[in-house]
Simulated scan of single mutants.
Amino acid sequence: MAILEKNRIKLQATAVDKQDAIRQAGALLVETGCVEAAYVDGMLAREATMSTYLGNGVSIPHGQYENRGHVKQTGISVLQVPAGIVWDEDDEDELAYLVIGIAAQGDEHMTVLSNLAEAIEDPDMAEALARTDDVNLILKALNGVPDSV
């Protein structure tokens, strides 16, 4: 099973703020059986302690250590917000266009993070993913498929 599947990608989304975006990314994980609903609260709590903004318009909200019991299967969700969301209230230029919810069992999060880092370290790729209307582009890039674009 792939880490990311079509039913965990929402294109052309809108969100009122980063908490709303995290809830939406978390809901995709809940609705597709990756996590229990309580995991989303952990995602919000984690964000309150440290920003999950990576740069290049990408944020990767995830639960805290104590939420690992709420993970049913490793997976990621993608909420694409073309208008962007202010991620840091102190820096309104820090906008997230891709909100990638992460749920991982055990040490699988290291593989997930490695695939994500490779896909989004290139600003052009990150922008392409933030603007695309092709779910398959996101699937290939974030599932670690080589030479995907």
Rank of each mutant, 00 (worst) to 15 (best):
G144S: 08
G75D: 04
Y65S: 13
E5N: 12
G69D: 01
I22G: 03
H109G: 01
G144A: 11
G84S: 07
L142K: 09
E66L: 02
I138E: 05
T52C: 11
V99E: 00
T14H: 11
G57E: 05
D133H: 13
M110W: 04
I102T: 12
S51Y: 10
H62E: 07
S114R: 14
A45K: 14
Q73N: 08
V86M: 12
K72G: 00
G63N: 08
V35G: 03
I138V: 15
W87Q: 14
D20K: 04
Y39G: 05
G33P: 03
S148G: 07
E121I: 06
R131N: 14
L142A: 05
D17R: 04
D17C: 05
P61R: 01
I120D: 09
Y97L: 02
T74Q: 04
A119S: 13
E94S: 13
D17G: 06
L98P: 07
A38T: 10
G63H: 08
S51N: 15
Y39E: 06
D133A: 14
D134Y: 09
H62Y: 09
V16K: 15
Q24G: 09
A13S: 15
E5I: 12
E94T: 13
E118C: 08
V149S: 10
H70S: 13
D122I: 08
S77R: 08
D17A: 07
E108V: 01
G42W: 02
N67C: 13
I76W: 05
V35C: 05
L95D: 02
L44K: 06
D41W: 02
Q24S: 03
I102N: 09
H70D: 14
M125C: 12
E89P: 01
E127Y: 11
V135Q: 12
G33F: 06
A103M: 10
A119K: 11
L142V: 04
K140P: 00
D93K: 15
A119Q: 12
E118H: 10
G101Q: 09
A38V: 08
G144L: 07
L139P: 09
M50K: 11
D17N: 15
V135C: 08
R8H: 04
I120W: 06
S59E: 01
G42M: 07
L137Y: 03
R131F: 07
M110I: 15
G144W: 10
D124V: 08
D88Q: 14
R23T: 14
C34S: 15
Y53W: 05
M1D: 10
H109P: 02
A15I: 04
V149N: 11
L137D: 10
V149C: 04
L137V: 14
H70G: 00
R68S: 04
V145I: 15
T74L: 06
A141Y: 11
V145C: 04
S59A: 15
I76G: 06
P146C: 13
G144P: 03
V145W: 01
E92P: 03
T74W: 02
